[in-house]
């Protein structure tokens, strides 16, 4: 059986909020190392991969592999009943029909209990290869969100060009064009505000802004975001959490 206690329900709330517009039904795969999720969006252009390590839970117990087939809209409805600071306990049997969620406030004088019906989801099995990227850019997640939102007003797609000292986001649309150039810089007082670039070779790729704007819903999970780029390889957008991550992969536009 699964029993997992999360100190802050807000972590799961933010994770679900970040991915629910990309995928609707998906399996939460639970085993002794933690809870993971991998799913492609319906159009097979983007993929989300989420991991919550057992270290993020206290206690965490999962005797055998359990797949929890969950409709994320249903989970969102139930999680609305939890405060961010509530303690959240997830429980499921070995071959579960439902997932049990208990929310307790920090004073421990209120507890709420919900059960969500589970579904059988036949999901593609995906292997994510280890990849050496040409460029890796770390920037404030709020900055990335603002850039994607601003450029999406002008165009459906953005070109990301990484060079040794800067990363440029540019777009062109019917009303005109726009670009944002971020120079590599280190903010010693506020490291989360820094922009860093690791470059093997310069790279320039074009992506759909609709998806990137969607990924930015994960900004609440982390003050920084990491973009990894290589030619003809899906872009990796990673939000790290204290004990886990949410990663999005997005295919570049390659003239189809």
């Amino acid at each position: 059986m699964l029993e997992a206690r999360l100190e802050q329900a807000g972590v799961l709330k933010k994770v679900v909020e970040a991915i629910k517009d990309l995928v609707q039904d998906c399996n939460f795969d639970c085993n002794d190392s933690g809870i993971a999720l991998q799913a492609m969006d319906n159009s097979h252009v983007a993929l989300v991969s989420m991991s919550l390590s057992h270290e993020g839970f206290s206690p965490y117990r999962c005797d055998r592999n359990i797949a929890l087939g969950i409709n994320l809209n249903s989970l969102t409805k139930v999680l609305r009943a939890a405060q961010n600071e509530d303690i959240l306990t997830l429980k499921a049997a070995d071959s579960p029909d439902s997932l049990n969620l208990v929310f307790e406030n920090t004073e421990r004088d209120r507890s709420s209990e919900y059960d969500i019906k589970l579904m059988d989801i036949d999901q593609e099995h995906l292997g994510i290869p280890d990849t050496d990227y040409s460029a890796t850019v770390v920037l404030p997640s709020a900055e990335f969100q603002r850039i994607c939102r601003d450029l999406s007003q002008l165009s459906e797609s953005v070109t990301i060009e990484a060079s040794k000292s800067s990363v440029k986001f540019s777009c062109s649309g019917d009303i005109g064009n726009g670009s944002v150039n971020l120079r590599q810089h280190q903010d010693l007082e506020k490291p989360d505000q820094s922009t860093s670039i690791e470059l093997v070779e310069p790279v320039s790729l074009t992506f759909s802004l609709k998806y990137l704007v969607n990924f930015c819903k994960a900004s609440a999970l982390s003050p920084t975001v990491k973009l990894s780029l290589s030619t003809d390889v899906p872009l990796l957008v990673e939000y790290k959490m204290e004990a886990g991550y949410v990663r999005f992969y997005l295919a570049p536009k390659i003239g189809d």
């Binding site: 097979h44 252009v45 099995h125 995906l126 292997g127 295919a251």
Partner: peptide, 14 residues
């Protein structure tokens, strides 16, 4: 559908 093909090849969909 080059994009979908790229995703399927990259992620080794079984």
């Amino acid at each position: 559908y080059k994009t979908q093909h790229l995703m399927i090849v990259f992620f080794d969909v079984l």
